[in-house]
Design a protein around this nucleic acid. Structure first.
Length: 346
RNA sequence: CCGCCCUUAGCUCAGACUGGUAGAGCAGCCGACUGUAGAUCGGCUUGCCCCCCGUUCAAAUCGGGGAGGGCGGACCA
């Protein structure tokens, strides 16, 4: 595969690449490494799946991929995960992530998994973190993390260590490429400033778009109805999609379309399948799409009505998620340990 | 260690001075209207009022104790 093809694979379905030129150089030099970190906080959902799906592109482009389960980060961010639950949630994340990668058509064994605390407590790392803390102002760190760390009237120190550690992780994991949602931009831009003073090259940054939630606006972790969880049953998925914000002919903040573009179609294409919309004869009969662009065109021209699209999308999402859901429900004791509030006891 | 402030619905808060058994906005839910959803109307739900003890016929409200959180406490201004 030549550099142009690799570039194409890595940059497709992305929100931003900083910078494409640097990425090209990495490819010319050989086999770059990339990492993406997930802080094991709330349950994983379909938004995670889209970023995970993209890891297949990284692998196909001949990149060494590392997935960081950022356990310490999950606690540093306003104690989103209680310290006692970190281990369980990390296990759950790894299980879910492997399931998603497999469902996306890649092999989890091709990816290196690592836990934050496996190396973030080492002397070398800690010392360098302190040095970064000395070099960074409070407001700079807060600004960098503002889209990621929970905001509060009385922010904890953890929230400012958070972006510094994430910047340092790039070096600690020896990554050439940092991949993450566009919300991570501030942190990695800080990283690009700091790392050259710490004997490491500024990473190339690849940012995934943040998908809209089903109720319009960005997907929100706190709004259960705005996202599809990996453990949702087909019936729940259908119900959530039916309730989704989806104005006829409009693309903006339309989570239904975005799920199709970033998750369903990439996976269907990988499996060589097409997307079928069942439609009453009264409205013209069934439709079949091979590519997302065709579907979007029909939707924008109002040929494809939301009421027909929604059930079809629900079914397709359900099918894509199915192997992950199965894997997780086989492991209900892990889910209960990781999220006792939701699945505990009973 | 000392001082002051805060804690009421999922969220933001009112009510406390002048005790009478809890409210608003937002969110949520349900209907109407749309071949979906939203918007718009119409309707509805929700509470260990942080905990304990006391005063009282009666405590979210008063008194005491405790917990959690916030702010402040050299000098200079």
């Amino acid at each position: 595969m030549d550099t142009a093809e690799r570039l194409d694979l890595v940059t497709r379905h992305t929100e931003e690449v900083v910078t494409t030129e640097e990425l090209e150089e990495l490819f010319d030099d050989g086999t770059p490494s990339a990492y993406i970190g997930y802080a094991p906080t709330g349950e994983m959902h379909i938004g995670h799946f889209t970023t995970m799906r993209k890891l297949a592109d990284f692998l196909d482009a001949g990149i060494d991929v590392t997935v960081l389960i950022a356990d310490l980060h999950a606690h540093l961010d306003d104690e989103k995960s209680p310290f006692e639950l970190l281990e369980y949630r990390s296990e759950y994340y790894q299980e879910a992530i492997e399931g998603m990668i497999e469902a996306a058509g890649s092999d989890p064994n091709d990816i290196t998994f690592i836990r934050g605390m496996d190396y973030q407590l080492e002397e070398e790392y800690t010392l360098e973190l302190y040095r970064m803390a000395a070099e960074t102002t409070l407001s700079r760190a807060q600004r960098a993390a503002s889209e990621v760390v929970r905001e509060s009237e009385s922010p904890n120190l953890g929230g400012v260590l958070y972006p510094l550690m994430q910047a340092l992780d790039v070096k600690a994991l020896e990554a050439d490429i940092a991949y993450g949602g566009i919300d991570q931009r501030g942190i990695y831009m800080l990283g690009r400033e700091l790392l050259p003073d710490h004997e490491w090259d500024a990473p190339v940054c690849v940012f995934a778009p943040l998908l809209s939630g089903l109720s319009g606006g960005k997907m929100s972790a706190s709004d259960a109805g705005s996202k599809v969880n990996l453990t949702d049953s087909p019936a729940e998925i259908e119900e959530k999609l039916n309730g989704a914000y989806c104005p006829m002919g409009e693309r903006e903040e339309n989570g239904v379309l975005e799920y199709l573009e970033y998750l369903v179609f990439p996976v269907l294409t990988e499996q060589g399948e097409s997307f079928v919309v069942e439609r009453p004869d009264e409205y013209g009969g069934d439709l079949v799409y091979e590519r997302y662009a065709e579907l979007e065109a029909d939707f924008l021209s109002e040929e494809l009505h939301p009421a027909d699209l929604k059930p079809a999308a629900a079914g397709a999402i359900s099918t894509v998620i199915d192997p992950v859901r199965e894997r997780l429900s086989d492991n209900d004791e892990l889910l209960a340990a990781a999220y006792p509030e939701t699945y505990g006891d009973s």
